[in-house]
């Protein structure tokens, strides 16, 4: 295998402050701080005018109203130029009737891509892979997803993650595998023996054992 990495790259991690940026976008110059108080999904795509990315942009545009209802803004990114982004967004609208309602960063310098670890040389040395950063209203990174160049993202999973994170924050609970809104949630496991004994007797809880109890919200 070809050697292409000479020094370790520091990648953003969950629970950390999202790296600041000052970027040129299709909606003007934007800074991370401009999104303070809103949740933000920052996502990268490999290149404009490519098939998988086009299907993803249409899909992101389709879930945009659902994200807005949840207080979430969308921000796309690739290392293409501003003119390319504008031309592509116009082309998507002309050919499919779908208007791209969110800004797209033109990261020609790769400043933002590198700060967020969006270039994976094993996939492509020049393009960003399909990353999704879910950043909360305090600008903390809450979820990171990486998809390879060949696989388009699942929008329902992105919405599901936002719902799960916001439910967790609002109620101090966790969500089980395949959880969706309306399903029972997991209550935090007790951390004392007395708590464990009380937990299994707790009315309204559905317990497999003291450490795995669910409740309806």
């Amino acid at each position: 295998m070809e050697e292409y990495q000479t020094k370790p790259i520091s990648l953003p991690r969950l629970g950390e402050k999202a790296p600041d940026f000052d970027a040129i976008t299709t909606h003007g110059k934007l800074k991370l701080d401009d999104f303070k108080g809103s949740w933000l999904i920052l996502f990268s795509h490999p290149a404009d005018f490519t098939p998988v990315c086009t299907t993803e942009f249409i899909a992101f545009a389709e879930i945009f109203p659902d994200l807005q209802k949840r207080g979430v803004e969308l921000l796309g990114l690739s290392v293409d130029s501003l003119s390319s982004h504008i031309a592509w967004a116009r082309n998507v609208e002309e050919k499919t009737g779908v208007k791209i309602p969110f800004p797209i960063i033109a990261d020609l310098s790769k400043e933002v891509s590198l700060a967020y670890g969006m270039v994976h040389p094993g996939q492509s040395k020049t393009e960003t892979v399909r990353c999704v950063f879910i950043i909360d209203d305090k600008q903390i990174i809450r979820t990171i997803l990486y998809y390879p160049l060949s696989t388009g993202r699942n929008m329902q999973e992105i919405l599901r993650i936002v719902d799960a994170l916001q439910t967790t924050d609002a109620n101090g609970v966790a969500t089980p595998a395949n959880w969706k809104p309306g399903d029972k949630v997991i209550v935090p496991a007790p951390n004392t023996q007395e708590g464990a004994e009380e937990r299994v007797k707790q009315p309204g809880y559905e317990c497999v054992d003291w450490y795995l109890c669910k409740k309806a919200l």
């Binding site: 909606h27 110059k29 800074k31 401009d34 999104f35 108080g37 809103s38 803004e73």
Partner: peptide, 21 residues
């Protein structure tokens, strides 16, 4: 900026960016 966003219906991030410009 929040009041401007509420009055105009323009997204807060765009208001902040626009005010800067």
């Amino acid at each position: 900026a929040e009041k401007v966003a509420e009055t105009t219906g323009v997204a807060l991030f765009r208001v902040r960016s626009g005010l800067r410009d």
